[in-house]
């Protein structure tokens, strides 16, 4: 290697390192702004949904048309910076429960480990929440048909898992509720189960 290059290489190295530091500085600022803007949107969105407040048009326009564009959505997904952090907020919803019934016997999904059972309870909550939310709207035919497919898929699995001997199985999607503090103080102390939907599968 010539002497010229030997002298140039450290210079190139330091220039590269400095450029990398500058790029990191710029990117980290952008990353933080991105996280803050995303979090503000999700907080705003939750507030609007929870209290059913009228949407602010300029805010919606900014987020829907300018901020949540495809490159930014990709960025948010790949860096995990585009997600909300407010779990169990603004309130804790009632938990969902999926129960199978056939020939007077009750069946549930069976698992070998705790983690999968936990994840199934997440699925139950999602499905039942979807049922509650869709009650407000009327024009969700495609989504409803998809949900029916989903319910049947879960029902078939419960039927096969439990080795049901009967020809049919009813699978219901329920909300498990517990009296509020006020109700409990007033003497209403029984937990309740509200059936939201029932699916029948036959052989």
């Amino acid at each position: 290697m010539s002497t010229g290059w030997r002298l140039k290489l450290p210079a190139i190295f330091f220039y590269f390192m400095k450029t990398r530091a500058v790029i990191f500085s710029i990117w980290s600022r952008f990353h933080i702004v991105f996280i803050v803007l995303t979090s503000v949107f999700f907080a705003y969105d939750k507030l609007y949904r929870f209290y059913k407040v009228k949407e602010n048009a300029p805010v919606q326009y900014f987020y829907n048309n300018l901020f949540f564009n495809t490159p930014f959505r990709y960025y948010g997904k790949l860096t995990a910076a585009g997600s909300p952090y407010g779990y169990f907020a603004p309130n804790i919803r009632a938990s969902g429960l999926i129960i199978g019934e056939s020939g007077g016997k009750k069946y549930t999904a069976l698992f070998n480990g705790f983690e999968a059972a936990m994840r199934f309870s997440v699925l139950s909550a999602r499905v039942t929440n979807n049922l509650i939310d869709s009650r407000d709207s009327t024009d969700h035919k495609l989504e409803d048909r998809f949900m029916d497919l989903l319910f049947k898929s879960i029902a078939v699995k419960i039927y096969n898992q439990n080795k049901c001997t009967q020809d049919s199985l009813f699978v219901s999607y329920n909300i498990v509720g517990f009296p509020t503090l006020k109700e409990y103080t007033a003497g209403n102390r029984q937990p309740y189960l509200i059936k939201l939907k029932e699916v029948k599968i036959s052989k």
Binding site: S39, V40, F42, A43, K46, L47, F50, P84, Y85, G86, Y87, F88, A89, P90, N91, I92, A94, F178, T180, L181, Y184, P191
Partner: peptide, 23 residues
Amino acid sequence: FSGLEKLMGYNWRNGESIWRMLH
């Protein structure tokens, strides 16, 4: 933001969320 979103709902401010979580 997690704290802020909880503060927005009245259930965290009146203890209802903790009650519901524990049950």
